[in-house]
Design a protein around this nucleic acid. Sequence first.
RNA 1: GCCGAUGUAGCUCAGUUGGCCAGAGCAGCUGAUUUGUAAUCUGCAGGUCGGGGGUUCGAAUCCCUUCAUCGGCUCCA
Length: 645
Amino acid sequence: MIKVTFPDGSAREYKEGISSLDIAEQISPRLAKEVYSATVNGEVWDLTRPIETNATLKLNKWDDPEGKHAFWHSSAHLMAEALEALYPGIKFGIGPAIENGFYYDVDPGDRVITEADLPAIEQKMKELAAKNEIYSRRQISKKEALEYFSKKGDEYKTELISELQDGTITLYTQGDFTDLCKGPHLPSTEPLKAIKLLNVAGAYWRGNEKRKMLTRIYGITYPKQKLLDEFLIFLEEAKKRDHRRIGKELELFTFSPKVGMGLPLWMPKGSDLRQNLISFLTPELRKRGYKIVTTPHIGNVNLYKTSGHFEKYGADSFQPINTPQEGEQFMLKPMNCPHHCEIFNATPHSYKDLPLRMAEFGTVYRYEQSGELHGLTRVRSFTQDDAHVFCRQDQLKEEFKSIIDLIMYVFKILHFESYTAQVSLRDPENRQKYIGTDENWERAERDIKEAAAEKNLVTTVVTGEAAFYGPKLDFMVKDALGRKWQLGTIQVDYNMPERFELTYNGSDNQKHRPVMIHRTIFGSMERFIAVLIENTAGKFPLWLAPEKAVILPISEKFNDYATKVLDFLNNSDICTLIDERSEKIGKKIRDNELKRIPYLLIIGEKEVENNTISVRKQGSGDVGSMKPEEFVNYISSEIKKETTV
RNA sequence: GCCGAUGUAGCUCAGUUGGCCAGAGCAGCUGAUUUGUAAUCUGCAGGUCGGGGGUUCGAAUCCCUUCAUCGGCUCCA
């Protein structure tokens, strides 16, 4: 007998070799239908795999990530089976479960799979799933595995196998399809009921652009059709929140092929939105000891040669600008830090002056690959809310913490609740990729981790993701479709102070090298606004809205009074519009609600008589009538509420 | 940059297997109406069917090319 301990601490005895599925079945037949994988002694297993020793057991259902994972991973194999049936000789790369569904990378030879082919593949999958095929696991030797896949002609699989350790190789088979896979999988295809293939894309084999481009097919499956329907509705809704669409609808920004791809043109309302964000952040920066600086959009090529950026990125960026002067070249600035370093160098510094915090809303230009451009989230010209903190090593941690505070403050005001924070460290196996002494690195990495912990920040730690000059902490926020975008970032840099020979006088009257922190809060105005649009569906908080209110006269008879109120509000710093069209009030309300204007002010006979306005809040209806002066106070107290933590 | 898809009026979309002068709704402009909390009615105007080239008696429709966009990959200072 073996002892199996459940997550609640209770334990039961079972016969050796019992499977998790049998255990679930004994607890309740219904449970057995709802579990998709089992975590046995901390390792995720097939439900049917026999348990031979005492163990802890967690049964994973749909709501457990490990349950979904097995479900979608098995779905990927089902799709592969369908593809093999429809495209004999098709070769397979990898086919994992992902955050929402699964994909498989395949090489269909000289055939082309397009979106038009997906329904047929989907149909085949449904057919195969209905057969309730068993997923069976088999361990084989490396030699056998290589033989099997060489015979099949699947060079991608043999490449993968050649890198695996003998004795760890397992195959899974369902129906006529066998795949190299470490599992785990569902017991059978039976639960795979609702199936939808989503799109086709190209993907380089092993993520290497020098290697062959395979065809990646994305799909998603659910145990119930209802869940799939909900997901498809979510996708439809997400489209409506797309910042590119809302940006057009609300006339915030535009692009013009004549100006150039990836170069956003900010329209009046979009500019106001941007300016509102800048006006919000600037006093916060001053409060926190930042000095605002301004630097040019171009710089001499030698500046970037000093910083190292030219050597690393010059060839792939906008090309240098030549002048009538022979040999003289300038570059559009791809980053602000070199300029800031020269400002630091312009005056002598004492250890008592540090930290020196230098901020700039600096516009930079980067030649992103054409296929990479994406609305406002990935552009070729953008404005960073950039800052560089020059400090002593012993000040690093405190500076880090205060930047985390600022990011948390801004995220809180904007209700970015579901961000992720990622600590990016160097790869200890690959030290030559990085510059700086081990001592500095270890200290910086420790400081970042401690700072994050002391700020109670939940972080994911990723090794190998550090910048070559130092470790960093990145903040990501999701867009409407759940894609993560990096916004704020805090990076430690030992490289640039060295290259620019930055120094300060220590208490020992010796020259010392400061440490530099690069940081942004918004990331860039463009990307931040894009994410903000998708998170709010264009219904910006009052304090950010480019237009706060619109006056809707019931009929033209009230235009005189309406115009007076309009002037009064605009003079009181409340950006207000008027809708004087001879339309019915219902129509005016509808149109202006669709423009997401926060307040609609209705003026008719009653209002003229009482010298009031009827206030309607966007999305929530009538909030009663008040004097124009009262409305001004009301608006400013609302804004105060919104911008206070 | 790579793979695949898409491109018809400011926006959302129709447009049979190539065949009168390319259509609709919304937005815009006219005129009527003077309206009380999410769509009043009338009329008008608006397009070299992304650009260029070709096939054909004839192209929005077929072919080539180019540009842009979308979904991914790679990249991301």
